[in-house]
Nucleic acid binder design. Structure first.
Lengths: 215, 215
DNA sequence: ACATGTGAACTGCTTCACAGCG
DNA sequence: CGCTGTGAAGCAGTTCACATGT
């Protein structure tokens, strides 16, 4: 009934997208083992959720299963890649070539999923001109010029908290619409810019809370 | 009316705890600037939420404000530290001394909030016996023995995805009740063990989805 | 017979709106 | 009067349960 792949008729919840991402990982695992079909129940068990949740998540995008049978592993994997926008290559710049920036630059998970790192930026003259693995470290003064020319899709922020908002303003001013923030600070950006923050301090405090408040 | 500090009468939502953590950060910022009181409205603006949300979040734990005035910055900061369990020192072990493990070992945010890293563990003989900054890298074979002796509160996992579940099983078997997982995989643990996962691949896919599905 | 797809019921987080109190 | 604290209302995400299709 619904032939288009990624129709967001309704607004899709963040939690749903995260689960789709998890399902895709399991499917790739199953694909590697040569399994051809999988049920919502099996997918649910792996992902720590329920079969109804799996079916509901998928139903926002179409009807990919066969009643009485389950889902075709390769087909569903393909559909999920389409839905998640993993069919194309996304270009990334890393802003901040400190410890975390360097670790990310060398993280192989990026490439594996079609994320290609163009460059890292820093203001430290010691680092500018060097390479992280095979990624050039450039002067942060070039940031806007380079972005306008190379049009990266995503900016990854690994600068100190105090500088993060100013970097957001700079990359947004030259058209970046997606930001992955590792600085432990709340960022403000226009509504058409998606910001995801990974905040280790916050996660640790969540663990501290959990350890403290259980009877 | 409610004299105890951290009474979880109701189950506190994860989202609430994350916001409390954010409020504390802002309060520390205000404290540094010598400001003495703050309203729920100001706290909300900074945190990208609403004043009602701030008041509701705090109301789960008591009545810390003064009507017509707002909150005392130092008092509220103290209360939040108490609620989040930041009054004491938490002991951490890092399992996996790869790029990310090394970056975390050197991350100053841990110490600042009272998280003290005891050691890192790896199975690579090249790394065992060395130090990351001033944190010893030990043989992962010692993991259980050391945990039983040193009783760390939190295990941070920076091992490959394939090994993550087995490390969970090992640390849980010797009493660890809180895990911060950086491996891109779904982990299963007993109900009394809190697991938080930081999954960069998932965040990136969330950005990919957002970039793909907007009209 | 079996597993999907989906309206309906439910649960729980967020927002509203105002009473309460400094 | 101003801002907190909080029941009540509203809304969104999850779970239920069953009709549907193979």
């Amino acid at each position: 009934m619904n032939s288009q792949a990624a129709v967001s008729v309704k607004r899709i919840a963040d939690s749903t997208v995260r689960r789709l991402s998890a399902y895709l990982r399991f499917l790739e695992d199953f694909e590697g083992r040569g399994l051809m079909t999988i049920s919502s129940e099996e997918l649910a068990k792996r992902g720590g959720t329920t079969s109804a949740q799996v079916r509901k998540d998928l139903s926002f995008f179409g009807s990919f299963g066969k009643r009485g049978l389950g889902y075709s592993v390769p087909e569903l994997a393909g559909r999920l890649r389409e839905i998640l926008g993993l069919g194309r290559e996304w270009k990334i710049v890393i802003v901040g070539a400190g410890k975390i920036g360097a670790a990310l630059a060398q993280y192989r998970g990026f490439r594996q999923r079609g994320f290609s790192i163009l460059a890292a930026y820093d203001n430290n003259p010691e680092k500018i001109g060097r390479k992280l693995e095979d990624i050039p470290v450039r002067d942060i003064d070039q940031l806007e010029r380079d972005i306008e020319r190379e049009k990266p899709d995503i900016a990854v922020l690994t600068v100190p908290a105090e500088e993060a908002q100013s970097v957001v303003n700079r990359v947004v001013s030259v058209g970046v619409k997606a930001i992955l923030n590792f600085a432990p600070t709340q960022l403000h950006a226009p509504a058409d810019v998606t910001v995801k923050t990974v905040n280790m301090a916050m996660e640790l405090e969540g663990l501290s809370f959990a350890l403290t408040n259980r009877e």
